[in-house]
Design a protein around this nucleic acid. Sequence first.
DNA 1: TTGTACGCGTTATCAG
DNA 2: CTGATAACGCGTACAA
Lengths: 340, 340
Amino acid sequence: MRPTTKDLAKAAGVSLATVDRVLNGRAGVRKKTVDAVYEAIERIGFERNQVAATLARQRGYRFGFALPRHGDEFLEEILKRIHEMDRAGRAEMLQADVIRLDDQDPHRAARTLSRLSPEDYDGIAIMAPETPQIRDALVRMQERGIQTVPFVSNQKRLDDQTFVGIDNKAAGATAGRLMARFLGQRGGAILVLTESMQSRDSLERRLGFDSVITRDYPALRVLPTLESHADPLRTAQVLRNAFAAHGDIAGLYLMGPEARIPLEVLRSFPFPPGRVTIAHERTPSTEQALRDGEIDAVISQDPGHLVRSAMRIMRARCENRSTLASQERIRIEVLIAENI
Amino acid sequence: MRPTTKDLAKAAGVSLATVDRVLNGRAGVRKKTVDAVYEAIERIGFERNQVAATLARQRGYRFGFALPRHGDEFLEEILKRIHEMDRAGRAEMLQADVIRLDDQDPHRAARTLSRLSPEDYDGIAIMAPETPQIRDALVRMQERGIQTVPFVSNQKRLDDQTFVGIDNKAAGATAGRLMARFLGQRGGAILVLTESMQSRDSLERRLGFDSVITRDYPALRVLPTLESHADPLRTAQVLRNAFAAHGDIAGLYLMGPEARIPLEVLRSFPFPPGRVTIAHERTPSTEQALRDGEIDAVISQDPGHLVRSAMRIMRARCENRSTLASQERIRIEVLIAENI
DNA sequence: TTGTACGCGTTATCAG
DNA sequence: CTGATAACGCGTACAA
């Protein structure tokens, strides 16, 4: 049998309560006693039974996903997975909520975060751009005892916080390499479109994309990034202008996470054979576009993995265990019509 | 508060013991009583607390991974993940063992399986070729009350058993499409190598590969599959013969899961620029080969996901819950140097 | 600063 | 066939 807290208490010559205090890092124990307990833990090989712990804790774990209020299909995918996890987690005393953050006003967003209390949440996964206000709110949340983990949207990590999401520079490089290889001998211009270059993610993807193209493919020219601001009319306009200005557009890189609008707009443009289009994230739109041959590849991160990984990490931190980093690295996936 | 078994017992007008009997499908309860309990479950919206259940059950869950005795790097990756999960699972009362099966003698393998008792294992994930003996052993294991789940190696599923692994036909098709697109305009012969065409997996991959090439790329010829039998000398020999016989080899498809030996052997052959090589599974060898530009893409399934998914499925079945199929589909991943 | 006693929601072991 | 009741391993008031 595995040693229990009782065995540990006996081995350390203290009571159960003291064992608990040491185990959970509570105050009010003499250093000498603490050391004795730790020594006993090593000696008898004690390992806390988390199942019993969560049962006794009465209240399981409540995790929140703080997501932008506005979004499109990719956000919708993530929401779906969160709700699935919530339903599946109930039996295991795990809850997953969604908190919506204002994505125009960092102050409001920060205020929303600062209202979150440890009574309500054990951990929060946050998908929000990196602003001083948000960063501040995060630090204070941690001080209040709420675990936080950066989620998908890549804010610069404070400390060595594990980030749940892909390496966007590598994702951009992956897109770049595929673009070039699919184009083969063909040279020309590559059009890059995203929602907004304000986002750190977009910057990093662009960086990765360019690094590959400029180093290895001199026959290709990557044009300045166009911004769509998630607006169909604006999207149509910038694309029209770009096509008018450059006669030799060979490739299209839809760099943002929401490809629906650009894809719809593109349908009204002529579709020269041989043009290569690459987008991000697996959504109904990109899936269909892959099937229809409108795009050639999709670079994506699996929403289900994202959500599960975030929950595993938050839970581990609540129980101050460490996570297997190897298991939590989110893969940069490449989708083509055959492996959708 | 969520209703507990106590509430349920009260609502159904029976004792806790009877509730337990009904919940766990044990015998010795009048049908009328059973119905009353089920009715009460619906009425009060009872949902069993799995945390409490596993704690009370005393013995957590023990899962076994029945893997072939012989293998190389890919098998090693899987073993590593299993051990990681085992260490990580101890706190949650989950164990993961490895059972080695004779991969030459199906009878011996079947015998090994038939010795497994429900005392020792709650579930077994099986990676073994599809033979009558094995199939039989599986059926009997299930009768004994051990959950089984086909793992990685794609035996035809009995009933609608969830299979943990990729769709190999789609994986082959993915390889085929990438091969053709990377080759671009270039025509020629494609060499296909695997360990043994006995394996159902190889057959399916080949099927998928061919379907894409023959339908869409008339300039490419896929040569008959070569068999290496995991033997370096044999590998060298069949490759030498093939290169001698066909002057126009443009592509190389390493179809088996263990690419180490072929990759090593290939280093002694001339490396014409423009040749495209695609392999399966992410291992130290294929990773390095991607980095070195020796291969162009790797089609893979994530060993960590495989192991975790298998354990989730087995556990869910033990607790007769259903799993979220959407979450358990193993992705066919495409790796290039940039997204390793 | 330390210890006691009870509760968490199930399962398991006895009787009846 | 059914019902009390004691574990299971830990957290947590509350008492000392």
